[in-house]
Amino acid sequence: MEMDMNGGGKVVCVTGASGYIASWIVKLLLLRGYTVKATVRDPKDQKKTDHLLALDGARERLQLFKASLLEEGSFEHAIDGCDAVFHTASPVKIIATDPQAELIEPAVKGTINVLATCTKVSSVKRVILTSSMATLHSPNFPLGPNVLLDETTFSDPTMVYTLQDFGRKCGMDVCQGQQLGLGHNESRTRKNTFNRKHHRLVDVRDVALAHIKALETPSAKGRYIIDAPIVTTEEIEKILREFFPDLCIAHENEDIDLNSMTYKVNVEKVKSLGIEFTPTETSLRDTVLSLKEKHLV
C-alpha cells in the first residue's frame, strides 16, 4: 500500500476514532502526514485509546477529544479548524432489543449533529461518511444472481438524499462509502456469523484507504461502494489450516439462501479512486500473523 505524504499541514477530524475501521483511518492519515483530531466517548478509557496513542506519528499529530453522538454541539472543539471530517462514529450491536432507540436514532441524530457542526466551521470543505451496505439492500430487497448493485441503488433513499442535499446546501462535499464486513454495523440476530457458509469480505486496509482517497481526490463525490466476491467457509478454513493444521470449525446449518448472496456489485467507482483490492488470501494470512504477533492465538 503506497503512502503518499499528501497530508502535510492539513488537519482532519475522525469521529468514533477507537472503532475498527476508524482506527485504520487514523493510522493511515498519520502515516500520510495529516494532523488528526480524533473523537472518542471517553479519552481516559485506556482500553479504547492506547492503540491510537501508540501509532506512528500519534505523539506529534494526534489529539483526542470527548464527544457523544446524541449531545448537540459536542463535536465542535474537535471539528474546529479542520479541513475535512471523517464521520465513522455509529453504534454497533449485533443484537439489539430496540433497534430504533439503540441503533437508528443515535446514528441518524449523530450524523446530523456532526454535519450541523461542520456547517458552522468554514474551514471544512469535505465530509466523508462511513455507511453500510444496508443502504443498498434490506431484508425486503430481492437479491439474486441477476441483481446488480451500484451507487444508484437505494434500499431507502430518504436518508441518503437528505444527507447529500444537506451538504450541497451548505457548500460541503459529502462522500458516502458503503462497505460490507463480517458482522460490522449489522443488527442481525444470528448467533455466530461464521456459521454462514458464504461470506463477502473486504480488507479493512482497503476500506480505510478508500476513505482517505475520497478526501484526496478533488473530483470525488457522492457514494462509493467497496465489496468483494463470495468466499466460502471451506475456502477460508483451507487458508487458515496453513497456520493451524488441527483447526476445527463447527459448521451449523444456519446459512441464508445462497441465491441471496450471489448478487453482483459494481465497484468500478471506488476503483477509480486508485483502490486495488487486497486478495482474500492475503487478508486472512495477515490477520493471523497479526494475531500471532500480539499473542492472541
Rank of each mutant, 00 (worst) to 15 (best):
D206R: 04
L103P: 00
N113F: 14
T158P: 07
C175M: 12
E293T: 08
A210I: 00
D80E: 13
N259H: 11
I212Y: 07
I112W: 07
R41T: 11
V288L: 15
M159H: 01
T262I: 06
E151L: 12
A67I: 10
I226W: 00
H198P: 01
E216D: 14
V14R: 01
L28Y: 08
V85N: 10
S155P: 06
K269W: 08
E71I: 07
A17C: 02
H87Q: 08
T111M: 13
E293Q: 14
V297T: 00
T233Q: 13
G181H: 07
L289A: 15
H198L: 07
T35K: 10
L55C: 14
E276P: 00
M261Y: 03
P91N: 10
L103F: 01
P245W: 04
F243M: 03
T193N: 04
L215G: 14
I104Y: 06
D150M: 04
G222C: 03
A89T: 03
C170H: 09
R190I: 13
T88M: 03
I212P: 06
I104Q: 04
L28M: 10
K125V: 07
H51V: 07
L149V: 12
D206S: 04
P245K: 14
Q178M: 05
N6V: 14
V114N: 13
E216I: 14
K109N: 08
N195T: 06
R126C: 14
E254Q: 05
V127K: 05
V12C: 05
N6Y: 05
S283H: 13
N266E: 12
I21K: 00
D80T: 12
V40A: 11
H184K: 04
R168L: 12
T193W: 09
R126K: 03
L31D: 14
G81I: 08
Q179P: 01
S18R: 11
M5F: 08
R188V: 13
C248G: 12
V108P: 01
G57H: 04
P139Y: 11
S219A: 03
A214S: 10
C248D: 10
V265Y: 00
A228R: 04
L240W: 05
N185P: 01
T119C: 10
K269D: 06
D227W: 09
L148C: 12
S122G: 15
L64I: 15
R59W: 07
V147R: 05
Q179N: 11
P157E: 12
L103V: 05
C82Q: 01
V108Q: 02
P279Q: 03
F277G: 04
E71Q: 02
N113R: 02
A58S: 10
K269N: 12
L29V: 04
T280P: 00
D80N: 15
